[in-house]
Amino acid sequence: MIRYILKRFFMMILTIWIIATLTFVLMNAIPGSPFNEERTSNEAVQENLERHFNLDEPPIVQYFIYLKSIATLDFGPSIKKPNDTVNDLLARGFPISAELGIIAILVALVSGIILGVLAALRHNGIIDYLAMMIAVLGISIPNFVLATLLIQQLAVNAGFFPVATWQSPMHMILPTLALATGPMAIIARLTRSSMLEVLTQDYIKMARAKGLAPYKVVIKHALKNALMPVVTIMGTLLAGILTGTFVIEKIFAIPGMGKYFVESINQRDYPVIMGTTVFYSAFLVFALFLVDIAYGLLDPRIKLHKEEGN
């Protein structure tokens, strides 16, 4: 187990290094510069700025400066936001993005599983059709369309919720719904099909034959195994939620990290591009790692390492 974790950890560092290098190369491949404004400031000032941000160095030197900044977790000052360092931006934006993302994933998990289980238990019944209709709608409607629809109907027309910004729990409901619906639909469909499969297994019949209470059969015996595919796709879903927050944050004017990610590329704010990309990829790689560990722990048939016995 320890060896497996160490190996995975090494792979994670390698992945992040490759992502950082690719980002650096691509970033330098796009024409333009952070100081490229409609009005050009005088050359002396521009040179001062370039020197200040090490942009006058040859690319290979800049590359090592960036690598060093990643290694020391100090991404340096933002070029376009003179009052902030990249670390400031991450510290300010990430907790909010994480709050939104985690609430959305919890909502998606809980409601998706409940919907899936109900649908499976009432297979081909009215609840099944209803649940699957919701799921199909949830998968097919893009989250930004849903977001606009929710704002127009529930905030502007009905006045139940504030339209946008991130201030009170009431402000959180609409963006969470918009973000959670897609993953919820996927989880619901997945839970339903794997639940249906599990419910026909012999050991479930056995459990029922023994006279166990129906809810015990469902929760203790069936659900536990039916959830394995859900755990498997958690990594992909996390990535989906992460990219979803970019869009949702913009529509709802949520001060999260997504906008730095997009804005910094348009503005050629190189330290912020590197900082956000490396941070996001590190976060995602780590989340996938956690999912793999959890998967191994949940299902003893999956061996993480030869030496591990259960």
Partner: peptide
């Protein structure tokens, strides 16, 4: 002063009186 960088959201906030 709010910081809403999406013109449709801005308009919807105007409509709802925010």
């Amino acid at each position: 002063w709010a910081m809403v960088n999406e013109e449709n959201t801005e308009y919807q906030m105007y409509e709802s009186g925010e």
